[in-house]
Simulated assay, not measured.
Amino acid sequence: MRRRDVLKAGAGAGLGLVAGCAGNGGETTTTTPSTTTTATDPYAGELHVATYQPFVDAPSVSPGSWIKEQFEKQYPKATLKWLTPQSELNYFVQRKQAGVGVDADVYVGLNADDLVRVDQELGGDDLFEPIDAGALDNEGHVRDELRFDPKNRAIPFDTGYISLVYNEKKVSNPQTFETLAKPEYASKLLAQNAQTSDSGQAFLLWTIATLGEENYLDYWKRLVDNGARLLDSWSAAYSAYLKERPMVVSYSTDQVYAHRYDQPLAEHQVGFLNDQGYANPEGMARFADTDTPELATAFVDFMLSKEVQSKIPVLNVAFPATDWAEPPESFSKYAHRPPETVTHSYDELKGNLDQWVEQWARQVASN
């Protein structure tokens, strides 16, 4: 699951112009992709798949190399090339705005909020295109509650659930949002800045979904007054959690990591406030400018296959997006699904997201 820390600013601001291409070894180089699809075989040639860098070469877990190997095994005339531009999705938005060709065929790793911002930046100039109904053999296995694009451009391939992670040797599970803001949890919580962190924004959206748009700012004032500490990134907050405080906003797959690295599970307990977890599904979409639509569609379908969906929990430490995945016992035992899933739809985020974050920043992050 992407725990990356990316500034959620306007998609056209301050963006780099060099795309990185990473292969099996995770080595990043500069490249200018070329179209190599043959006229006779739509499943031959190079497929350029863009994603965030940890998906390809994270030091602990990374699905990129395995996905490349398996896809090329299934499509022996195709070569998968990973692209990891520094500014991620924003790189392609800027190219589209500049009237420059988009040098990729598929994007892997966008959330509902990413899609909202892309559409706001580009207006009617679509970056992605819907995949025709019936073109994907495996799409019927996608869990309906994880779908976030009403136009069916972005199709979920995995999801994480935002939760609390706490050290039960030092603090008890607060269990509700209300209890978390009480004096007994003063100076216990670490969270992330909703302007600079995916997990921080997701936690903010969770409070809005559960407490209501009319109440979330008052609640955040209570949290901050109670000593909640905000850091700019998930990694910074988690590092501080391991050293300084007993509770952090994180993901409900935390015990998978803890078990894998022989960490005491008592120090990595998962808490679902109000018996909820905020779902943050990751999607993949086919670029509208792709010159290899059939091969791009085949890749999307491949990502939804039972084999890949069963491997995602191991390699990306995230819940699969389909109903036919068979995660290994080690994942199923230590990854926790919330009793109730909470999330915002595309339509709910459209026209509201920027305002919510800006209001939160004025009251909370600026203090």
Rank of each mutant, 00 (worst) to 15 (best):
L164C: 05
P63H: 03
D289E: 15
G99W: 04
G109M: 07
V6C: 07
P281Q: 09
P59E: 07
L304Y: 03
W324F: 07
D354A: 13
G227T: 05
A202H: 15
Q363R: 12
V6H: 12
R153M: 08
N226L: 02
K151I: 06
Y166G: 06
D125Q: 12
K151T: 12
T196Q: 10
G271E: 06
A186K: 15
T51N: 07
A296K: 02
Y216I: 04
W360K: 02
K182A: 10
Q175V: 13
A202E: 14
L223G: 01
E145Q: 12
A266V: 11
E184P: 05
R4V: 15
Y107R: 06
L230I: 11
R147T: 08
N193H: 06
L315A: 09
A22M: 13
S239R: 12
Y43L: 09
Q363F: 08
D126L: 12
Y216E: 03
W220E: 03
P293N: 01
D232S: 09
G101W: 07
T37N: 02
A279P: 10
I208C: 08
T179I: 11
L7A: 12
S250V: 05
S60Q: 14
G212D: 03
R222D: 10
A44F: 00
F177E: 04
D254I: 11
P293Y: 02
V308D: 00
P320L: 00
A11F: 13
A202I: 12
L304D: 01
Q86P: 07
F331T: 07
L265S: 00
L315N: 11
Q74E: 11
L122S: 04
V61S: 13
I312N: 00
L231Y: 06
Y278G: 10
R147Q: 10
E294T: 03
P33Y: 08
G64I: 02
F203I: 09
V364H: 01
L83D: 09
N226A: 02
P328H: 14
L189A: 08
R286K: 15
G134E: 03
R147F: 03
R3W: 13
R3A: 15
G351D: 02
K182R: 13
E69C: 03
C21K: 15
R143P: 02
R222W: 03
L17F: 14
T35Q: 11
Y241A: 03
L146Y: 09
S187G: 14
Q355E: 11
T35D: 13
G200T: 06
M1G: 15
K243W: 04
D149F: 04
A191W: 13
F272R: 06
V118Y: 01
D225F: 06
V317E: 11
T31I: 14
